[in-house]
Simulated assay, not measured.
Amino acid sequence: MPRKFLNAATLALAMLVSACSLLPDQIDETKDWSAGRLYSEAQSEIAAGNYDNAIRTLEKLESRYPFGTYAQQAQMDTAYVYFRQGEQAQALAAVERFIKLHPNHPHVDYIYYLRGLINFNDKLSLFNFLSRQDPTERDPKAAREAFDSFKQLTDRFPDSKYSPDARDRMRYLVNAMSAYEVHVANYYYRRGAYLAAANRAQLSVKNYPETPAVEEALFVMARSYDALGLDALRDDAERVLKMNYPNSVYFRGGKPKTGSWWNLF
């Protein structure tokens, strides 16, 4: 084949490849859409559960119209969509970014609430005491972070429409963290680590004094001190237990009924 024809064919092929590479941009039907239309499309995708499409549309909206109400709403919705997808790290990153960029936004209370929900969403893996996983293997860090987020919301925005639910979840989390300490204390007691058991139960009494788990925590402390031969501390724990729970089933050698507080949500 003559060289000039070969060069022409090569040039034509290169142009074809280049044209193909531009094709996705050429067929992007959203390229001339307004911010309002992009936002409406993203909302439709969210409502349909098409979260990947929603994220892509929200990203286009923010990149093309980076200023104004629609961009701010896109940032909020991006955090929500990642939350709905179960993408905790990305959801938290989006939340923190929004708070940093818009600390005085009129709906920043919602973002604080969402941050709490993102961490709270791990509650089943953290506090499902009926699972086969040993409770000492669970890290309650997410629960504490959720509590802190909800507390920031209720402290900064006590009249927010999200605050009542946040307070309910805070009560749940306090109860859960208290019960967590008692479960760990029982774990140590069963293995003969009586001092560790007493100390862990004491954390529940000290840090969460008004929670249902305190009754059992005092009982664990009493029997742990008894096993250690620390009679004075045992008697003191029993005295506090009897004073606060005079009808406790532990005085009759029983166990309390399984509470339903952890099924609140």
Rank of each mutant, 00 (worst) to 15 (best):
F251I: 02
L230R: 10
F127I: 09
A14Q: 12
D134S: 11
L203I: 11
M221Q: 13
K4M: 06
P103G: 06
V205Y: 00
T136M: 13
S204L: 02
M1V: 14
R239K: 15
L114I: 08
P164W: 00
A93V: 09
S40W: 07
P256L: 09
L264C: 07
E215K: 08
R97E: 04
S149M: 03
T69Y: 00
P135S: 05
L16D: 05
M1D: 10
D165A: 13
F120N: 04
A47H: 08
L126R: 09
K4I: 15
A19W: 11
F150D: 06
G86W: 04
D139Y: 01
D139I: 08
D236P: 15
D139W: 06
A198K: 01
R3Q: 11
D52K: 12
A74I: 08
C20S: 14
N121E: 12
Q202S: 07
Y80S: 03
F127L: 05
N128F: 11
E145V: 14
Y172N: 01
D28S: 04
Q73E: 12
V214C: 03
A179L: 09
A35T: 11
L173V: 09
G49S: 02
Q73L: 09
S160R: 04
R200W: 05
R138K: 13
Y51T: 08
Y172G: 05
F83E: 00
D109Q: 02
Y172T: 05
E45W: 04
L13E: 02
T30N: 13
Q133G: 07
I118E: 02
D231P: 00
E238C: 10
W261G: 11
C20E: 01
P256T: 09
V108C: 03
N263F: 05
K141R: 10
E41C: 01
E45C: 09
L241G: 04
M177C: 03
L130M: 04
V108M: 00
R169V: 09
T30A: 00
A193V: 07
R132L: 04
L233H: 05
D235S: 09
M177T: 07
K4A: 15
V240H: 07
P246R: 01
A42W: 00
P256V: 14
R167W: 02
N199P: 01
M76H: 11
N207L: 14
Q26A: 12
G49L: 12
V249K: 15
K4T: 14
P24Y: 05
A93E: 02
E216I: 12
N247R: 08
T69G: 00
R84V: 02
A14M: 14
S40M: 14
Q85R: 07
E87W: 08
R167A: 12
S163D: 05
Q73I: 07
F98R: 05
Y188L: 10
R223Q: 10
D122R: 15
F98T: 03
R239M: 06
F98C: 05
E41Q: 12
R169M: 08
Q85Y: 02
I55Q: 10
K161A: 07
Y245P: 01
A237H: 01
L264E: 15
R3V: 15
A54C: 06
A166I: 09
L241K: 10
L23V: 07
P2H: 04
R144M: 13
Q73Y: 15
R64Y: 02
I46M: 08
T136G: 02
